[in-house]
C-alpha cells in the first residue's frame, strides 16, 4: 500500500502496480503450497493511480495472487479495484464454488457505497467470474451494468483501450507449458502428508517375512518401495502436467500410465538384479498405479475437464487402481516366502 486517497466514501488505500520483494516471496509461498490457503486481501475498495468519478471499477477476488495479478498489470492506469470477499479463493474456483457470486458482488457494492464514489454505473468483472455471477441479476440488484473483461488480467489495458470490448484471444482460456509447469510445486507439496503415511505402511509391510518381522528387510525393501513411489510421483505429478497435450488418449488415468511407463521401466532396470520376479512385478505395478492416480487427480488443475467427464473416467480408472494396489500388496507380501 502506498497511501490513502480521500473520497466521499472515506479514505481508500492506494496500492502499487509493481511487485515488492514481499509480494514475490508471498507468490512463491503460495505457489509452493505453504500459505496457499491463507493468502488473503481484506475485501473492499482499493485504488491504482489517481482515479476519479469517471474511472473504471475493476472487480476481483480476495485471494492475494488474484489481486496481485490484477494490480501488477495496471501500471499507468487509474482505476478503482473492488475486492469481493471470496474467502481467499481465486476468481474461477470461487465462482465455481458459488462464493464469487451475484450476492457477494451486490453486497460489496452496497458495503463500499460504490454508487457515491463513481458517477458511472459500470463494473468490469473477470470473464471467469461469469460462472458464479449473473450480469442481469447484478444490474437488477444494484443498477450497475456488468462488463465481463478478459480471462487474463494482462489483457485488461487493451480491453479498456478498446472500449470494454474483448477479442476472441482475450476470451479463451489457455493451458500453456508455463501455465502447467507452475502448478507442479503445489501438486508435490500436497502429497507430503499422504506420502508419509504410505511410507510408514510401506516400511512396515516390507519387513514382514519368514522371520515374522525383519528390520533389515524393512529398510532394504522399504527403500526400494520408496524409489518406486517417487517414480510414480514423477510420472503422475511432473511428467503428466508437462507432457499433457502430447500424451495420447483422453482419460487422465490412462495418460498417467503412459507418463509413468518410462520411469517405471527405468526403476525396474536399476533394481531388477537385486529383486525376485514377484517384487519386480510389484514395483512396476506400484509405480504405474501411483502415476495413474496422480494424473487422474490433475484433472482438478486443468481448465478443460468437465465434471461429467471426470466422473466417467473415475468409474473406469479407480477400480483398476484399487485392483492394482491389492495385487501389488499381495505380491510384495508373498515375495519373501517364495
Amino acid at each position: 500500500m502506498l497511501d490513502f486517497i480521500a473520497t466521499p466514501v472515506g479514505p481508500v488505500p492506494r496500492v502499487a502496480t509493481t511487485a515488492s520483494a514481499r509480494d514475490r516471496w508471498g507468490t512463491i509461498g503460495a505457489r509452493i503450497g505453504l500459505i496457499r490457503r491463507n493468502y488473503k486481501v481484506v475485501p473492499g475498495l482499493y485504488a491504482v493511480g489517481s482515479p476519479d468519478v469517471l474511472s473504471p471499477v475493476l472487480v476481483t477476488a480476495n485471494y492475494k495472487l488474484s489481486f496481485d495479478a490484477l494490480r501488477h498489470r495496471l501500471s499507468g492506469i487509474a482505476a478503482w479495484l473492488l475486492v469481493v470477499d471470496t474467502r481467499g479463493i481465486n476468481v474461477w474456483c470461487a465462482a465455481g464454488k458459488g462464493v464469487f457470486s451475484t450476492e457477494e458482488v451486490l453486497q460489496s457494492v452496497r458495503d463500499t457505497r460504490l454508487g457515491e464514489l463513481v458517477s458511472h454505473r459500470d463494473l468490469i468483472l473477470p470473464q471467469l467470474a461469469a460462472t458464479g455471477v449473473s450480469a442481469l441479476a447484478v444490474k437488477k440488484g444494484c443498477g450497475f451494468r456488468v462488463f465481463f473483461g478478459p480471462v487474463r488480467a494482462a489483457d485488461l489495458p487493451a480491453f479498456l483501450r478498446q472500449g470494454k470490448q474483448g477479442d476472441e484471444a482475450m476470451r479463451t482460456v489457455t493451458f500453456t507449458l508455463a501455465e502447467r509447469a507452475v502448478l507442479i510445486p503445489v501438486e508435490l507439496f500436497l502429497l507430503a502428508k499422504p506420502l508419509l503415511a504410505i511410507l510408514f505402511l510401506g516400511f512396515l509391510v516390507s519387513g514382514i517375512g519368514p522371520s515374522v518381522f525383519s528390520p533389515a528387510a524393512a529398510l532394504h525393501r522399504g527403500l526400494v518401495l520408496l524409489a518406486a513411489t517417487a517414480g510414480g510421483i514423477v510420472g503422475g505429478a511432473v511428467l503428466t502436467p508437462l507432457l499433457l497435450p502430447w500424451l495420447p488418449g483422453r482419460q487422465f488415468w490412462c495418460k498417467g500410465l503412459l507418463a509413468g511407463l518410462p520411469v517405471a521401466l527405468l526403476a525396474w532396470l536399476l533394481s531388477a538384479p537385486r529383486l525376485g520376479a514377484a517384487e519386480q512385478l510389484a514395483l512396476l505395478l506400484w509405480t504405474e498405479t501411483v502415476s495413474s492416480y496422480l494424473a487422474m487427480n490433475f484433472t482438478g488443475s486443468t481448465p478443460f475437464t468437465s465434471p461429467s467427464g471426470v466422473e466417467y473416467e473415475m468409474r473406469r480408472g479407480l477400480p483398476m487402481q484399487i485392483a492394482a494396489v491389492c495385487l501389488t500388496l499381495a505380491l510384495w507380501l508373498a515375495a519373501p516366502f517364495l
Binding site: 474456483c93 465455481g96 464454488k97 442481469l136 465434471p307
Partner: peptide, 18 residues
Amino acid sequence: RNCPVEAITVSPGVGCAV
C-alpha cells in the same frame, strides 16, 4: 448463469477427481 431466458441448461460443477 448469464442466459436471461433459460435457453441453456447445464449441470455445472468442478471437473476435479479429488
